[in-house]
Simulated scan of single mutants.
Amino acid sequence: MKHLKKTSRRTRVLTGAAVAAALAAGTFGAVSATAAPSAAPQTAVTADVADRNVHRTTHLTADAATRAAQAALKAAEQDGRRVTVAVVDRNGNTLVTLRGDGAGPQSYESAERKAFTAVSWNAPTSELVKRLETAPNLKDIPGTLFLGGGVPVTAQGGPVAGIGVAGAPSGDLDEKYARAGAAALGH
């Protein structure tokens, strides 16, 4: 085994100084590159697209979703029912979920899935349950729940949200409360 020769103190100092200088230059360069404004002006690329290339959508506001959920929850509480209410947007994303006092733990996810199912097919989930007779594989679609209690909310002929209620003893009651939430959005 060969013995490595010790480097001189001068070599170690010069090597350390060179490494420190390289690191400092790199750091300064990186900071300078991100901090300095570009010499050439940036021009945004814009294009006016024809209307046929644009699809406009309508969405329920968070305030409206909250009002609908509160109205559905209030209707259930007036009947002495402990439910959870969920409102999802037109894409099935949850806008608001209100779990009423004493609502069962399963009701949270069930309400969201009923709302998602209603907006996905733009139909009440009680109607969709009937479709399972001819298309039983519908129930296999992820995120759906084919039980009564979900209603779509429409504007200008298209779905903008879904309201789902879960926790009452029947889907008919859940749907009654979901409809109360949708009614709160009426004119």
Rank of each mutant, 00 (worst) to 15 (best):
E112L: 14
A75V: 03
L60A: 03
L98P: 08
A86E: 05
D79M: 09
A71L: 10
L132I: 06
A62S: 10
A111F: 05
G92E: 04
Q106C: 12
D63N: 08
S110Y: 07
E127T: 00
G80P: 04
G100F: 02
A123P: 00
K139Q: 15
T134I: 11
S107C: 07
T125E: 00
A86P: 12
A65H: 01
A69K: 03
F146K: 11
L98Q: 06
T61K: 10
L98W: 01
A69N: 07
S110L: 12
L132A: 14
T97W: 10
A75P: 07
A86Y: 00
T117A: 10
N137F: 09
V83M: 09
N93F: 03
A64F: 02
N93Q: 10
D101W: 06
R67H: 08
G102M: 08
N137D: 13
E112Y: 01
E133K: 14
Q106H: 11
A69L: 10
D101R: 09
T97C: 13
P105Y: 12
Q70W: 03
A115R: 00
A135E: 09
R81D: 14
R67D: 11
S120H: 05
T84M: 13
L128R: 01
R113Q: 14
H59K: 14
T125W: 07
V96Y: 05
Y108V: 15
A111L: 05
A64E: 13
A76Y: 01
P142F: 05
K74W: 04
A76G: 10
D63Y: 04
A62H: 03
T144C: 09
T97Y: 08
P136C: 15
G104S: 06
A68W: 01
E112M: 12
E109C: 08
A123S: 06
T125G: 05
Y108G: 14
G104A: 09
A69Q: 11
A76H: 02
P124R: 04
P142L: 14
N93Y: 02
L132D: 04
A86L: 07
E127L: 05
R81C: 15
T134R: 15
A115Y: 00
H59C: 12
S107Y: 00
L147R: 01
L98H: 05
V87K: 08
A135K: 07
H59L: 15
D79L: 07
P105S: 15
A71N: 11
R90Y: 02
A118K: 02
A118D: 00
V87E: 04
F146E: 07
P136E: 06
N122A: 12
L73Y: 07
A71M: 07
W121C: 04
A111Q: 13
V129I: 03
R113D: 15
G80I: 04
R82E: 12
H59T: 11
